[in-house]
Nucleic acid binder design. Sequence first.
DNA 1: CCAATCCATAATTCGTTGGTTATGTATTGA
DNA 2: TCAATACATAACCAACGAATTATGGATTGG
Lengths: 107, 107
Amino acid sequence: MSDTAELLFKTLADPTRRAIFERLCREGEQTVGALTASAGVSQPAVSKHLGVLKHAGLVRDRHAGRQTHYAAQPRALAPLLDWTKQMAGFWEGRFNQLDDLLKRMDQ
Amino acid sequence: MSDTAELLFKTLADPTRRAIFERLCREGEQTVGALTASAGVSQPAVSKHLGVLKHAGLVRDRHAGRQTHYAAQPRALAPLLDWTKQMAGFWEGRFNQLDDLLKRMDQ
DNA sequence: CCAATCCATAATTCGTTGGTTATGTATTGA
DNA sequence: TCAATACATAACCAACGAATTATGGATTGG
């Protein structure tokens, strides 16, 4: 079990945090203030969430004067995609094994 | 934001729970006892995790005498795959828009 | 230079959750 | 029938996490 997937699942499990990430994916780079305006929580809460997202590699930050711009880094989602496909793959594999077994028994 | 994805992320965020699900994907149907033997937590804890997984549609249970067999239901992962692709898609879309813009500016 | 703005961090509170032990319910085997 | 097995549920506890308010540090505009 990849430790990266661990972090990704935990990071994306919180609805507020995932909403912030979704917005960054949809609308591109945003300042903390802009994100706070429609996050439904306080500015410190948003900053904290952004910190967690950054720690998971899901966003990057760019400092410009007294503003900090955050942007989504969707490439970081790759391990999630891999894990999901792998789980489905194991299942398919077993299914095929059973299928083969039944065919062999049929002869 | 899909409410199903909500449940999936929260359900899979716990390492013990995800390990149980992974094992069911890899090795197929298992009894609670078998899962408990290598889960590293008590049997009630495993039962509780299985309940959460079932509530998210990730496993199904089959009663046989005094045993309960659990099996993975990887189809339930579909919304997760959809969400991930969608996020990457938004990003790609914006990227292409920028790309197009740059091309048009270049003329 | 000073007040205001933007963001991050600290300190605290409180609900959620994952773990435990204890117990209940159903089924099996002797 | 009775003890043992398999699992689920209940009750409780400790730790974590997400929110708040308060504050600090840096930057900008007047």
